[in-house]
């Protein structure tokens, strides 16, 4: 791979990193507005409120950049960057289409993605502690407990697919995928999607933020652009989670027809479909209480993921 090609690939990933989350953010505005009969997001700019996202951006850029007097400044300022970086790096290994349509094919791509995603929790703890605010700290503690717990079913269910495909490379997993895996790996798919939703702290797993009890959790003290960066991290998180679900469980670039030529389109379609489900769940489900959240993880997801591992191993050794 020449240096110019490498630069082009990285540039394309950065472009995807900057545009896809905005598309998801705009979709969230509109989908929520339709589902909840909200009038606000349908107003700005005239037709269908197309300018709402722009207005939000302008609003964030105008707000004053506040750092509480008691806060630990450097850590406080660094936290949003640490929240964004893992997602940007993970986008490097996600294959868009067959052949060479992946920024950086890695042998252990799946493992790399899971390892890097795990770093995100550090940013949460940094934001929570550096804010010097009791609500922030409470939100951070809830978040750390949640993320540590849900990482286990996430990794176990991903391991099931890796076992079925016999490889840790993400393009390799898609290449090995067959439509009947949808049924065979269905429990793993549900566990992975639920755990990933908890990993990015989206409702119904938004206990760490819980705006009706903790002000805004670990984001309480953040304003303006830094807050916008955390929001951006949330939307990139949706894209990354949807992309990983697509690649691992939904067959990535494989579709009913024209796999080779239109593969990238299938991938994007599936990513947006999963993102839509994530937004839908936010509108349709109430927030889980802390004990319900931990019980769901340890008493439902982990046993199901372990059972799926046994099933996968049995089928792989039998065939």
């Amino acid at each position: 791979m020449s240096l110019a090609e490498l630069g082009l690939r990285v540039a394309l990933v950065v472009v995807a990193f900057l545009t896809l989350p905005l598309v998801v953010g705009q979709a969230e505005h509109k989908v929520m507005a339709h589902m909840q009969g909200r009038l606000g997001p349908m107003y700005a700019g005239g037709f269908h409120g197309w300018a709402q996202l722009l207005a939000d951006g302008v609003k964030f850029a105008q707000k004053e950049d506040l750092i509480p007097r008691g806060a630990d400044g450097p850590v406080f300022r660094l936290a949003p960057a640490v929240a964004l970086l893992p997602y940007l790096v993970v986008l490097l290994v996600i294959p868009l289409g067959p052949g060479d349509l992946v920024a950086q094919p890695l042998d252990a791509g799946l493992f790399f993605a899971l390892a890097v995603l795990g770093v995100g929790v550090v940013s949460l703890l940094m934001a929570a502690w550096a804010s010097a605010n009791k609500y922030s700290l409470l939100g951070g503690l809830r978040g750390a407990a949640q993320l540590l717990g849900y990482e286990l079913p996430l990794v176990l269910s991903a391991a099931s697919v890796a076992m079925a495909a016999g490889t840790l490379s993400l393009p390799g997993i898609v290449a090995a995928w067959r439509p009947w895996w949808l049924l065979w790996q269905l429990p793993a798919l549900l566990v992975f999607f639920t755990a990933a939703l908890a990993e990015i702290r989206r409702p119904p797993f938004d206990m760490p933020i819980a705006d009706s009890e903790l002000v805004f959790g670990y984001l309480t003290e953040y304003t303006g652009l830094r807050f916008a960066l955390f929001l951006l991290a949330e939307y990139v998180g949706i894209v990354v989670v949807a992309a990983l679900t697509t690649v691992l469980f939904l067959g990535g670039w494989k579709g009913p027809f024209a796999d080779a030529s239109l593969g990238w389109l299938w991938t994007l379609l599936k990513v947006f479909a999963v993102s839509f489900a994530v937004i839908w769940l936010r509108v349709a489900t109430p927030r889980l209480r802390e004990d319900q959240l931990q019980r769901l993880c340890w008493q439902a997801l982990v046993p199901v993921a372990l059972g799926q591992l046994v099933l996968t191993a049995a089928v792989v050794t039998a065939t």
Binding site: V121, V122, L125, A144, L147, L148
Partner: peptide
């Protein structure tokens, strides 16, 4: 991702 986070926690 796990040990240091547990420690900080």
């Amino acid at each position: 991702g796990a040990v240091v986070v547990l420690l900080l926690f």
